Computed example of a mutant assay.
Amino acid sequence: MKKWYKDIEIKLKGELQAKVNQQQKLTIDEQALYQRLNCAKHPTVEIAGHIFYVNYHLQKLEPSGDFMSSGIRFADLDDFHNDEMNRYEIPYDSNRRCIAEIDLDCFFEIPEGVFVVVIPYPSVMDRVGYARSFGTLYENILKEIPQKSHFKVEVLHGKDSYLEEFVKMNRKAEGLPPLVVKKKCKGLNR
């Protein structure tokens, strides 16, 4: 890391530490920034009750407490970018804590525990990690969007979920009756 860049990080840490020492109230955004810079605490994102750490250095969302799962790589999110809405809409497999592998052409029903979630851009979830990766000044990045410590994703269902639309189209094309949803998933408003 370049010296001038390190100097700016030290200055920013010092300003936040001075506020803490003077027992001034930090805003929620300042608390998140303080924890990210001084405590190396990664931001988290909650996906269907599962907590993931946003690790910009490793370029992935790492599941908390599940070392068997490889998590969700940022590069894999690009396949699910919704250009119209300017966001990622991924099919999430809550059983495996990863992106669900689905062949949309042969898709006649939604597997249990799979649903579409909206994930913010990694550069929005971890502003400090983003700035560090590209050697950009923190001040410039944080002015646009402040550092947050936690995100909760939106679950899409009904006409907003492209999975349900594919199921309807595929069943109709094969002459199968429409799928009847018997029960709602607890806590997912499906």
Score class of each variant (00 low, 15 high):
S133I: 01
A100K: 01
K19H: 05
L37R: 02
A173T: 09
L33R: 02
R171P: 04
E84K: 13
I8Y: 06
K6L: 14
V54I: 14
K183E: 13
I145N: 09
C185I: 10
E9N: 08
E15M: 11
L61Y: 08
Q31P: 00
G14I: 00
P122G: 01
T44C: 06
V45N: 01
H50Y: 06
I110P: 00
S64P: 00
H42R: 15
V181N: 10
K143C: 11
E139G: 09
Y56N: 12
S149Y: 08
G187R: 07
V155H: 01
A173Y: 02
M68D: 10
I141C: 10
D83M: 09
M68G: 13
A32G: 02
L137S: 14
P120L: 02
D76E: 13
G113L: 06
P122W: 02
M1F: 11
H50N: 14
E15Q: 13
Q23D: 09
G65N: 13
N55Y: 05
V128A: 03
K41V: 10
I72N: 00
L12K: 14
I72R: 00
I51W: 08
S161F: 04
I110M: 08
S94C: 12
I51L: 13
R73G: 04
Y121W: 10
L163K: 05
D7E: 15
N21G: 04
T27S: 15
K159V: 11
G65L: 08
L33N: 03
H81L: 14
N140L: 12
H157G: 07
Y56K: 02
N95D: 11
E46P: 05
I10G: 01
V20M: 09
I72V: 14
E15F: 06
T136E: 15
I99W: 03
K186I: 12
N189Y: 09
L156D: 00
Q59T: 07
R171F: 06
S69N: 08
Y5L: 15
M68A: 10
K3H: 08
R190P: 04
K159I: 13
E154D: 11
G14R: 05
M169P: 01
R97F: 04
V124S: 04
H57C: 12
V116M: 09
E174D: 09
I110R: 11
K11Q: 11
L16G: 02
E144H: 09
E101P: 02
S123A: 11
V118Q: 15
F134H: 14
I47V: 15
K11S: 10
P43L: 06
S161M: 04
R36A: 14
A100V: 03
E9W: 03
A32K: 00
S70G: 13
D103H: 03
R132I: 07
P178Y: 07
K186N: 08
E164I: 07
F151K: 03
C185Y: 10
K183W: 10
R97L: 14
D105I: 03
E89I: 09
K11C: 06
F115N: 03
Q22N: 15
E144M: 08
E101W: 04
P91W: 00
N38F: 05
D93T: 07
V181M: 10
F107P: 01
C39S: 10
I47S: 03
E30N: 05
L12V: 14
P146H: 06
L142R: 00
P91Y: 02
T44F: 02
N38T: 11
L142A: 05
N140C: 06
E139H: 07
S161H: 07
D79L: 12
L176C: 06
D126T: 05
N55D: 15
